[in-house]
Design a binder for these strands. Structure first.
Lengths: 334, 334
DNA sequence: ATGAAAGCGCTAACAG
DNA sequence: CTGTTAGCGCTTTCAT
């Protein structure tokens, strides 16, 4: 049924030139005389020729696409990062392959493998892998990798990240400035680098203030609003008094706030609340949530940019952005 | 520097078998004796061999990935759809390539071309193309396509969508039930099918109620909260009285509500507000927004599932989901 | 400026 | 069950 695929051979024949020439008008038009070029272009147009990327790639070595493994594409934070990557890639004609690992190292590895096999020209990954063995292999095979929000100290892999500890310290200090001497942190498992680092940052601030170990962690299952709400519900059952709350990310913070509201009206004075990421929606809630702002979109752009410069032979580098506290009503006692 | 890529030839040699056999243990293990299989598998492991997808694809004809062109991956609606697609694809070992057209038909076409060239096994697209010429070509060349939220009546292309007119009618009827005889609709350009259809639906309801043409459209630039807020600001400058407001999507509704709130306190009684899509966050705002719920995730899953069944030779079909009104405080006068 | 020819790494016949 | 071989469609020397 379907028309046999038009190949460059058909185009060449239709234009009365050799395939080499046809290929040249596609890739190095300046080497072809205007007249022939025109003829070939018309043939391309008329036949609806679309070059077969696989063949091109097989011959020339790499795909004009990069792969990204993110934690959860439904989290606005990652969507924004993805958009930053995509926009930067777009400028150089690369496409983006995405996969969500959902925090599962095996899913992460599967995507990496798929991407590699597909011949992507590079990979950007928010890794949840423990030892980075997979990445060691990848770079061993010559693939360019940029780590996002993650890092393997002993591996020569460039990374783009935010200083989680600094952000968490800012959050904790802010909470202490409100007069609280203890902090409850809704946090995910410490296998996630962000979770571990943000907890560590909060601890540092507490310790520096001479408050020893005044950080209590409440485990959340999923790092989203449902996870936050569920954890908050259980926590509230223990009838805690007024508490300063720090959430590992804004989605969790939203869930916690939602639950607190449901349980009888949320008041900043009783439960000052700080999130992390500063995603759009937190600014715009009934009680807007104080958060730690990351240059999300830039994170993506820079990661993509680094990947490109690696192809140009740059050396390994680590970019760390410094996040910023954005104070809102959730920590302004009324 | 980097180790020369390991190919199947290396593996075959290391295992002391022919490439054909090596290929077979990768693709049709049952045809190989357990002993040889083992030897080959060990070689694969030891050498860190990752099959070159391009070569495989070139030879076997298609890539185990599908491409999706969406309007804007930052819109939670599309993220959810994407997740539905991804999850379904995942079940059959396919990956997902995404691109955001941003409503630009040329960007849309560029992505399609890229995907096709890459040899994807199918395409899912939320098209903003006017005549569908690109798609005609695509299917002419034998590529499987499923349209999302769009349709070209004269082209034999399967689609998955929601009945926008029905949804808009429900919204308008609901607004009228509150006693309003005119509706202000914050809408995007009618080139977007959703925009045109949702406006048409609202008009139908108004007309059916004998209210003639009581729909006023306020143009929004971008179909997101910034677009909504900006348009609302200009609109408010005209000092409109109490108005029933219908927004083409929830993001716009959020922006409008935000602006109304900023301009002196938003009151449902004065400005009853209905959005569309029922994205997560609308339920959870200071004044939760009434919306039209779409089976978002399912939309994606079904689209992906249809693509697979097309490969199995199914015929063209159109799936239309019926959306559902979800009433919240933004239309409950206080 | 153009053509001819050699593969890129793999799978799919086809032999044996 | 295993080996041999012929390409998939393209880019790239190398001639001309």
């Amino acid at each position: 049924m379907a028309a046999t695929k038009t190949t460059i051979v058909d185009v060449a024949r239709a234009a009365g030139v050799s395939v080499g020439t046809a290929s040249n008008v596609l890739n190095k038009p300046e080497r072809v005389s205007p007249a022939t070029r025109r003829r070939v272009e018309q043939a391309v147009e008329r036949l609806g020729f679309v070059p077969n990327g696989a063949a091109r790639q097989l011959r020339s070595g790499n795909l004009s696409a990069v792969g990204a493994v993110l934690l959860d594409i439904r989290n606005p934070f990652y969507t924004d990062v993805a958009r930053g990557i995509e926009d930067r890639l777009d400028e150089s004609g690369h496409a983006l392959l995405v996969g969500s690992s959902d925090g599962d190292p095996r899913r992460e590895a599967r995507y990496l493998r798929l991407f590699e096999g597909q011949g992507v020209s590079g990979v950007i990954a928010a890794s949840v892998d423990q030892d980075g063995a997979v990445y060691q292999e990848l770079i061993g095979r010559g693939l360019n990798v940029v780590l996002l929000e993650s890092q393997f100290p002993d591996l020569p892999i460039s990374s783009v990240r935010v200083d989680n500890q600094a952000g968490a310290r800012a959050a904790a200090n802010h909470l202490m400035s409100l007069g609280f001497k203890k902090i409850v942190m809704f946090n995910g498992p410490h296998q996630y680098r962000q979770c571990a680092e943000r907890a560590a940052g909060a601890r540092q601030a507490l310790t520096a203030a001479g408050l020893g170990d005044a950080l209590t962690e409440v485990q959340v299952g999923q790092l989203n609003s449902v996870g936050g709400a569920t954890a908050a519900q259980a926590w509230l059952a223990g009838d805690p008094g007024p508490s300063a709350i720090f959430c590992v990310n804004d989605l969790v913070a939203i869930g916690v706030q939602r639950e607190l509201t449901a349980a009888g009206g949320y008041r900043p004075k009783r439960f000052p609340l700080v999130g992390f990421d500063d995603i759009d929606v937190v600014a715009d809630r009934a009680v807007p949530i104080t958060s730690i702002r990351q240059p999300t979109y830039q994170l993506g752009r820079r990661a993509a940019a680094m990947l490109e410069s690696m192809n140009a032979g740059e050396s390994v580098e680590h970019i760390t952005f410094v996040p910023e506290l954005v104070v809102r009503a959730s920590t302004r006692p009324t």
